[in-house]
Amino acid sequence: MNVIVCVKQIPDPATPGALDPGTKTLKRDGKLILDESDSYGVEMALQLVDAAGGGEVSIVSMAPNGEVSGMRTALAMGAAKGVLVSDPALQGSDALTTAKVLAAAVGKLGGADLVIAATESSDGYTGTVPEQMAEVLGLPSVTFAKKVVVDGGSLKVDRQTEDGYDEVTCPLPALISVTAGVVEPRYPSFKGIMAAKSKPIDTVTAGDLGVSPTGWAGAGQEIVDVAQAEARAAGEIIEDDGEGYTKIVAFLENLKVI
């Protein structure tokens, strides 16, 4: 079984981020790391290939400046090879263009039995790329997968919903988006880290893939404003007169937590 995972390389969330005042987007000129959201997809892909008893995991990514640091992390975990699309003309691309580029990268790898993406990235949060990719690739798509089992030529997915989960079956090949925490991402072994450097990453431009970049001008979306997040309001202090718990219960009921 061959699986392709879409991985995004993002600025390290542990370091202070900065916005480009002109484009109102996150600056991405420093070292990028593997988006933690995608580490779950990589782990799931590795587990599915292991369970199938053969095949390999490949990765595709779109990032500026030929950045591969995050991809190396996925390769160190066990992925076999990758395609990086890096092209200055892709700056300002909207979600649909990103989906077209990544779909073309999947095509360059010859397709797969399964394509996996995170439900959304940790820095952009559009949450639309996986479904757009599925449309471009002509694949059935299941979102918010929290459990995935391959059963012959089909896929059985527990799909997270607000109330619980749906049991969905779909034919392969397919594209799924997986939720964070769906599996426990493995630590890369030392051997895996040392081997990652020599695993192949094919770096290509949009033109190599036959995709026309639209850049800022042609993007179907625009960030019109960036505002400071509201400061958190002060909490309510309840003096416990012995009946304080009833107020806590009422508070939680109001939030529909219980």
Binding site: S69, R72, T73, A76, Y187, P188, F190, I193, M194, A196, K197
Partner: peptide, 15 residues
């Protein structure tokens, strides 16, 4: 090296 940094980060996470 880049590999050493990756190893340091992985071990830091474990620690």
């Amino acid at each position: 090296s880049d590999e050493h940094r990756m190893i340091r980060e992985a071990v830091q996470r474990f620690v």
